[in-house]
Each structure stands twice: as C-alpha cells, then as structure tokens.
Nucleic acid binder design. Structure first.
Length: 410
RNA sequence: CGGGGUGUGGCCCAGUUGGUAAGGCGUCUGGUUUGGGACCAGAAGAUCGUGGGUUCAAGUCCCGCCACCCCGACCA
C-alpha cells in the first residue's frame, strides 16, 4: 500500500472527546473513527488489524473442529420470549418493523443457534458439533466507555458446542481453553493473560474468563501466583482462596476480559426442545457450551498493552503491515524495493509522499507502529542499502539492498 | 439511571463587565527547505450543539432539550 493513496492520514491533536488511550491513539493514527459513544468505524489500517485477529481466531477454532457460520443479526422477538430474556436482558437493542413486528439486534446468539442446530443435529451419530461466527454484536450498554474496550457495537467470536453427554462437553471445554491460550500467545498476550474463575451458574461450579492485565481494564482479578490462575470479584467474595490450590495469598490486579467460556448445560436445549436420539432410540437432551471472545476489544487491549510515548507497537502477528518503508526523497529507489517486497508477498506500507518532511514520516511510522521501519535516503543508498529499525528499539543498521527480501521473507 | 464536566470552521482551542468571532493543525496557491511533525507570503472555510426567552444588541445572561467525556450503579 502506498501511503500517498491511503484513505486516512494521521492527526496531531488528541481528540477531545476521548480520554482512553486506545481510542486516542487509534483515532490519531487512522485505525478507527468515532461515530458515537461506543460506536466506531474501522478504517483501512484498523480493518487490517481486525482481520488478522479474526484470522488467528479462525485458525485456532479450526484446530478444535469449529465450523464457521454467519447467523442473522436481526432476531425476532419470539425466540427471546422462549427463553424469557426479551424482558430480562437489559442490554437488548429492540426495534419495531412493519406491522409492529418486534426484533432485537443480536447481543448473543443462543436463541438463534439452538433452533438452528436442532434442524441438523438429531442423532448421537451427529454429535458433538461446534459452530461459531465472527459478527458485530449490539448491546445497549448503559455506559459505553474506554474506546474499543466497551462499545455498544463490537465484534465477537461466539462459538457454541453441542454434546451428547456431560463428559464430552467437559473434554471439549478443556480443548477450547487450550485453543484460547494459543490465540493469546499468538497475539503476544500470553504472559499477561490469566485464566480466571468466575461463577458458573446452574450447570457447573465455575465458568472461566480470560483476563489480560492492564491498568486500562475495568475488572479486578485476584491472582494466585502458585498456579497462575486468577479469580474474579464474585468468586473472591464467596471463597477468598484459589479454587485450584486453596492458596489464600492472592494478589489484586486490574484486567480486561478478553474472552469467556461457559458450560450452558441443557438450559437452551430445554427451552427450544432440542433433543437427540441415543443408540437405544431414546430421546436425550443435548448438552451445550458457549465460548466468547472479542476481537475488537482485543485490538484495544493490545494497544493499551503495547505502546510507548510515540505510538503503537503492534505485535508482528496482527500489525497492519510488517514493514513501513519510508522514502526520503528517493522514491525511485524506494519504489524498486517496494515492488520487490510486494512480489514476495511481504506486507509493506510505502510512504511515498512527496513534499513531506522526514520528521513527519518518522512520527507517522512510530504512531502507526509497524514492526519494522525501512528508510531509503541518499545517505543510506550511499552506504549501499537501506536503514532498518525495529519499532520498539532505537538501534538502527544498514541492510544491503540484496538482503532485504531474504531478511523478511520468512 | 444518579453525580460531575464539555459543546465555537474538518481537528485542537481563545473569546474580558453582553457590542457582531482570534490563533494553531489540516486544506489550497506561490516560494524556500529536505534525517524527527521545517519556514515565508497569500487564500478558502463558522447558521458559535439545538429550541425558546431576556435585551437596542447574545458565543457570552436565563430556561428546556440533545450529544460527548468522567465517577458510580449496571455489564447473560
């Protein structure tokens, strides 16, 4: 991508109606744009990041046999009445269509996925199955805040699994847990993310959240350093010790919930009368699990966690581009490098803008935060190459022209 | 939903005891620059959130409403 053609440009001023760091810097760098409280447009750079997060999620869901679907976002009132949530789910955005027909914008999809799965999963031979989607969710939050961390419209990966018995759900649940940790590891959040015990409702003692440590987080978790898990507030009120090792010496920390998984049991299969035929020809209730993860919230979290005074420091796995190539009055030479990188499928943002001061290009590169910065100038060409610098470091070096592709093509 | 704060060109903002809107960024034109948001000259761009009221006169004072931010409550 040539920066001269990019739809957005960076801005110097901090937007006055944002105080959260992730929103300020994502807006300044041109990743997102604010529409209203908790409502954002995703712009070319931001969408690239979001898509990369989504693709990591897809990749890991595939390893646990999750099949991607896309369910309706406009959901009829009746399904919510079936589970008694039409009047009890405060955050539902409700709307009225023709003939006074009422709908809710999808806030979660148990009410849609259960009738859907009922149409296809009828026999023990067809279980277990697991389907997921990545979709915009709508929740009428009483108070949207903190940029991408709590929006009224946000992206969610929600997966639902269907099992013939509890043991099968239990086993799958553990597989999901492991897949989630692989996702956080690929996002660079492994060390900061804790499996966190929270209350489980009627069907299991606990559910689990995945909490990433950051001062920007709105949750308080209590970490057990012995077994590297945490408990949330409601659990510590009940138990006041680590549910794994009974350790009472827990450390409080602020965190943001980047995922949660839940054993639903038969709550929804009962409500929608979803049963399967077992090998004795007997109808049995289907056991369900659900597994949420918020890609847009994760994008905000990554920004909160990886940054410095100058801008974002994207992990390579989700950076909008791997390389930010800056031409300082050497567009011809830089363009050759640009074309060569493109030819080798190396993602590059090429700052080919003319009449732009070098300082501005450096400032933009730091703000946007691609992992590597390559500078082409008369000076570097004289030295036989281009300057290379990793985003978080101050160390610069010259890399010969004929080694660039080799350096980045793995 | 309670409490607090803020609304002035696309963005950030100044605006005194009420007297007809200043500056910076960005944009456009010309020139000078060219390794950390460079400089000079000129230009375009504003129903001052919105509706009402007071006044000869309202960005400024009064009342209602709306939007956004923060704290709290809430967050299957």
């Amino acid at each position: 991508m040539k920066q001269s053609q990019l739809f957005t440009k960076t801005i110097k001023e901090i937007p006055k109606d944002e105080t959260s760091f992730n929103a300020q810097i994502l807006i300044r760098a041109g990743f997102v744009d604010k529409v209203g409280a908790g409502i954002y447009n995703f712009l070319p750079l931001g969408l690239r990041v979001l898509n990369k997060i989504n693709n990591i999620v897809r990749d890991e869901m595939a390893t646990i046999s999750g099949q991607e679907v896309l369910m309706a976002a406009l959901t009829p009132k009746e399904v919510w009445q079936t589970t008694d949530r039409w009047d009890n789910f405060d955050a539902l955005f409700k709307l009225v269509g023709n003939d006074d027909k009422e709908y809710a914008l999808g806030a979660t999809h148990e009410e849609i996925v259960t009738p859907l799965a009922k149409k296809f999963l009828c026999s023990y031979k067809e279980l277990p199955k697991s389907i997921y989607q990545i979709q915009v969710k709508f929740r009428n939050e009483p108070r949207a805040k903190a940029g991408l961390l709590r929006g009224r419209e946000f992206f969610m990966k929600d997966m639902y699994s269907f099992h013939a018995n509890q043991a099968d759900l239990d086993q799958y649940y553990e597989e999901v847990k492991a897949a989630y940790f692989r996702i956080y590891a690929r996002l660079g959040l492994e060390d900061l993310t804790y499996l966190t015990y929270s209350s489980g409702g009627a069907f299991s003692q606990f559910s689990h959240e995945f909490q990433t440590l950051t001062e920007a987080g709105e949750d308080h978790i209590y970490i057990c350093s012995d077994c590297r898990v945490a408990v949330n507030r409601e659990i510590i009120k009940e138990h006041n010790f680590c549910p794994v090792c009974q350790n009472k010496n827990l450390t409080e920390a602020k965190a943001i919930e980047v995922g949660n998984i839940f054993k639903l049991g038969t709550k929804f299969s009962k409500a929608f009368d979803m049963k399967y035929m077992d090998d004795n020809g007997q109808a049995q209730e289907v056991i369900m699990g659900c597994y949420g993860l918020g890609p847009s919230r994760i994008m905000g979290t990554v920004v909160e966690v990886f940054n410095d005074q100058r801008g974002i420091i994207w992990p390579e796995s989700i950076a909008p581009f791997k390389i930010h190539l800056l031409s300082l009055k050497e567009n011809e030479a830089a363009n050759e490098i640009y074309l060569e990188l493109i030819k080798n499928n190396i993602e590059v943002l090429f700052d080919d803008r003319e009449e732009i001061a070098a300082g501005e290009k450096f400032a933009d590169a730091d703000l946007i935060g691609c992992p590597y910065r390559l500078v082409v100038s008369a000076k570097t060409l004289q030295a036989g190459g281009v300057e290379i610098k990793a985003r978080p470091s101050d160390q610069m070096g010259i890399i010969p022209l004929n080694q660039i592709i080799n350096k980045f093509s793995h």
